[in-house]
Design a protein around this nucleic acid. Sequence first.
DNA 1: GCGATAGTGATCGTATACGATTTCGTACCT
DNA 2: AGGTACGAAATCGTATACGATCACTATCGC
Lengths: 220, 220
Amino acid sequence: MTETVLAAGSKSQQAYEVVKARIVEGTYSPGYRLVLGSIARDLGVSVVPVREAIRRLEAEGLVTFERNVGATVAGIDPTEYLYTMQTLSIVEGAATALSAPLIDAVAIARARAVNEEMRECLQHFDPVRFTQLNQDFHGILFEHCPNPHILDLVHRGWNRLAALRSSTFRFVPGRAHESVNEHEALLQLIESGATADEIEKAARRHRSATLDAYLAQSKQ
Amino acid sequence: MTETVLAAGSKSQQAYEVVKARIVEGTYSPGYRLVLGSIARDLGVSVVPVREAIRRLEAEGLVTFERNVGATVAGIDPTEYLYTMQTLSIVEGAATALSAPLIDAVAIARARAVNEEMRECLQHFDPVRFTQLNQDFHGILFEHCPNPHILDLVHRGWNRLAALRSSTFRFVPGRAHESVNEHEALLQLIESGATADEIEKAARRHRSATLDAYLAQSKQ
DNA sequence: GCGATAGTGATCGTATACGATTTCGTACCT
DNA sequence: AGGTACGAAATCGTATACGATCACTATCGC
């Protein structure tokens, strides 16, 4: 054991995780200029692994990259938010529908418990915690998706949203209430053995509704 | 003008395009071992840009990569084919539905012309040409998709399929006839101003049907 | 005074070099 | 003869170094 290499084998991987974490937690806010040399020095590695990490993040859409100029953290352009939410509504809806037949009573119970926590959370509203619970809830529903590609797309969507600064519900607090109710409806739909199409539509609408609420608010 | 640098600015980009082309056209067949040094020497560049190109291809799912071992061209695992087709059916269906309102009469006419070519192509069946026309046809329908993320996902799906060796219809020649007819039905649906949901379902089923035909055949 | 242009600094892109890891072949032991 | 352990070759991972490109500023000409 040379040092604390326990982290993640390759330096590229480490760099990737560190930078990604900093973007998600907001240390690097949107528009932040990611300079290879600085990050490399900061992590105590060379620029090559950092460069690779940045390119991976570019592929995931978390940063934008311009040749001979550099990378910047992807902005929370309202248009981008719209695109991301719409895409997520589609792939998440599909993933949830594909998962549904594989969700047993135990998972349903867990999801319901999380949703109850969300309901309580409504009292002394904490956007960050609420968003986290929301992610947990949906995670339970779509993680059983047998198609790994779709699952990957869902994860990427969530990542992008996370990068767009922690809490969706901070923007549209009014959605929180409806959201909890829609969750329960979704659970009952799955329990009752509804068709894949019904579940997909419900899950998609659930997310579209948040998007619509955001649009309605920002337009006023 | 120094040389024939007109290709694509950076060496990474060049390497990416060359390797990708070779995978798609089959020079590097599935399972082929991609050695950084060899490719670098072959392209007359250093290993660093090649490395970056390979990682990009990994992100797109065209190659698999193992640390300290190397990259190999992603295999045509039947399961992979299934996953890719299913994912594509979802995102392509969505992209087509989103495009529909933006497709004018001119585009419809072009698509119909392509489909007629496909119909003629049925006589002296050429799988590769047919597959190309098929891609053109669907391209016309979904390229107007206003959401760039979804469009990107569709392109990635097509790429993966292309990498899985040129012609889908070689595997299920029987599908070709039905496919042409379904195309016409899809066009009429769009012309008649059908709802987004109807169009999405039709487009999705169209692709699912090809998948089902493949499964039915490989099971026999 | 305003615009264009040349110079400078910073950053990226790529090449080369070396250490780390894996894999395969061979020899030895049981 | 079969299996294991050692060693060498191949390949990957990263560091360092240098050339290329871009943004910014100050100066010159109009």
